[in-house]
Amino acid sequence: MAAETQMQISDEIAIEITKMNKWYGAFHVLRDIDLTVYRGERIVVAGPSGSGKSTLIRCINALEEHQKGKIVVDGTVLSSDIKNIDTIRSEVGMVFQHFNLFPHLTILENCTLAPIWVRKTPKREAEETAMHFLEKVKIPEQADKYPGQLSGGQQQRVAIARSLCMRPRIMLFDEPTSALDPEMIKEVLDTMVALAEEGMTMICVTHEMGFARQVANRVIFMDQGQIVEQNEPEEFFNNPKSERTKLFLSQILGH
């Protein structure tokens, strides 16, 4: 599997972060982050809570503003220009821990809203695309229901489909399974695995180490706002270098 997935990664740079720093008030959340993501890479970001994992990926689509350093997404430098930010956001899909579906719209409307209003896709076409992706996440029969009528796992799959409808080139996952019952985690992970196999560039903040082993080609470990260690999953899990990583792994894998 590792050899096969290696091949899909190109030399083209999808995201380049150099010397990025962020503060919440006086609190230094992210410190000198350097990260280059190549197209087709599947990166898992792990680390204890409060280590800045979520903040890092939220900076990539400018949900959080960084104060120092440079982020280049798909060749566009992230600046404070609103037009620029909206362009990057429409190219980068994001899946949230709490799904954040729009409760006043049906599943289908959730999926067609952004294509119709941002991409100016005709309604008919947007609906066809939406149904295509809802089939892909295996819930086309729920299209006319409201988010409140679906289970957590189903809602998260809809959220993935909603992002995919914008045909993003990069997908960010912010702890997508943390709010789910154990029985529903698998259905969401299966969807993400399928997505990875198609060669989507993905950055996942997650605690699912099985998923990291199976899908990721690189695992990044963060602590106290810094990247402490990054490696291929085999090396990372079997032969961690830093003491902090060893401690972390022993705590989450030890039981």
Binding site: L63, I82, R89, S90
Partner: peptide, 9 residues
Amino acid sequence: EAADSLGLD
């Protein structure tokens, strides 16, 4: 955030 992340202005 969801609205922002989809690129809606």
